[in-house]
Amino acid sequence: MTAAARLIAVLGRELAVEASGRHLSRVAAPFALAGVLLAGLAFGPVPSVLRGVAPGLPWLVVLLLAASLSLTVAVAEQEDGCWDLLRCLAGPGPLLGGKLIAMWVWLAATWAVTAGLGVVVLGVGLSPAAVPAALLGTLGLAAAVVVYGTTVAAAGRSGTGLLTALILPAGLPARLAGTQAGTPGVDPVPWLALLVAYDLAGLAVAWAVFPTLLEE
């Protein structure tokens, strides 16, 4: 089996696990709705205030949810007792690629749901550049989440609280640049360039450390 076929197989397994467990629909969607409603209550009905916080709200929800999603990176394999078998059969590259793409989908979907709820519930809009910014930012964040989740799996979940705190600073560049790029009236080009650099750095780190994490 080629590396591409193994990657597709890992991605298909991730999608199948989500379809059976419904983690995204059971946790992410209610979390996004709660975030939007709490923002509406906290900032009040003033349109100018809501327009100011709307670009950053989806990123806040995504960043807060990323820590809990990272704990699901290898939980299904550990519960089934096949984590060691999967990492031996798939190999570092396909395993990283499949899990990273799946996590990218979950994070981007969470951003989209939160942004859509913000438009409907709060009645505020985003800049057209918010969509490419979301795709770029969630890619780099997905790389950090997969590395974090694999670290937890390798460590047998020891130090989980500390590692959960560490992933929040790792996602701050995505939140900052994504918020600015999605703000109407702000030139998105420098912020999109920053997100590209963030992705390249995150992917490079993930590619470098992932094989070592699998050997733990």
Rank of each mutant, 00 (worst) to 15 (best):
L64A: 14
A67T: 12
L69N: 11
S70W: 08
L71G: 12
L71M: 13
T72R: 13
V73N: 10
V75P: 08
V75Y: 15
A76G: 06
A76D: 15
A76Q: 15
Q78R: 13
Q78S: 07
Q78N: 15
E79P: 12
E79L: 14
C82V: 11
C82M: 10
W83I: 06
W83A: 11
D84A: 14
R87L: 07
C88N: 09
L89Q: 11
G91F: 13
P94C: 14
L95K: 09
L96P: 00
G97W: 11
I101F: 08
A102P: 04
M103F: 14
M103P: 05
M103D: 15
M103C: 12
M103G: 13
W104E: 10
V105W: 03
V105H: 11
W106C: 08
T110D: 09
T110Y: 06
T110E: 13
W111F: 05
W111A: 11
W111R: 04
A115D: 15
G116T: 04
L117D: 10
L117T: 10
L117V: 05
G118A: 14
G118P: 12
G118H: 03
G118I: 06
V119T: 07
V119M: 14
L122P: 01
L122I: 06
L122A: 02
G123H: 01
G123K: 08
V124D: 08
V124W: 08
G125F: 00
G125C: 07
L126N: 01
S127Y: 02
P128V: 10
A129G: 02
A129Q: 06
A129F: 04
V131E: 03
V131F: 12
V131H: 02
A133P: 13
A134E: 03
A134Y: 06
A134M: 12
L135R: 10
L136Q: 13
G140H: 07
G140S: 05
L141V: 01
L141G: 10
A142N: 00
A142M: 05
A143W: 07
A144D: 08
A144G: 09
V145W: 02
V147Y: 10
G149D: 04
T150I: 07
T151D: 12
V152E: 13
A153I: 02
A155Y: 09
R157I: 02
S158M: 13
S158T: 06
G159W: 00
G161Q: 00
G161H: 00
L162H: 09
L163M: 14
L163C: 06
A165C: 09
L166F: 15
P169T: 00
L172R: 02
A174R: 02
A174T: 13
L176R: 02
A177F: 09
A177H: 02
Q180M: 05
Q180H: 03
G182C: 05
G182Y: 00
T183V: 01
P184R: 00
V186W: 01
D187S: 11
P188V: 06
P190R: 01
P190Q: 01
P190D: 02
W191V: 10
W191M: 07
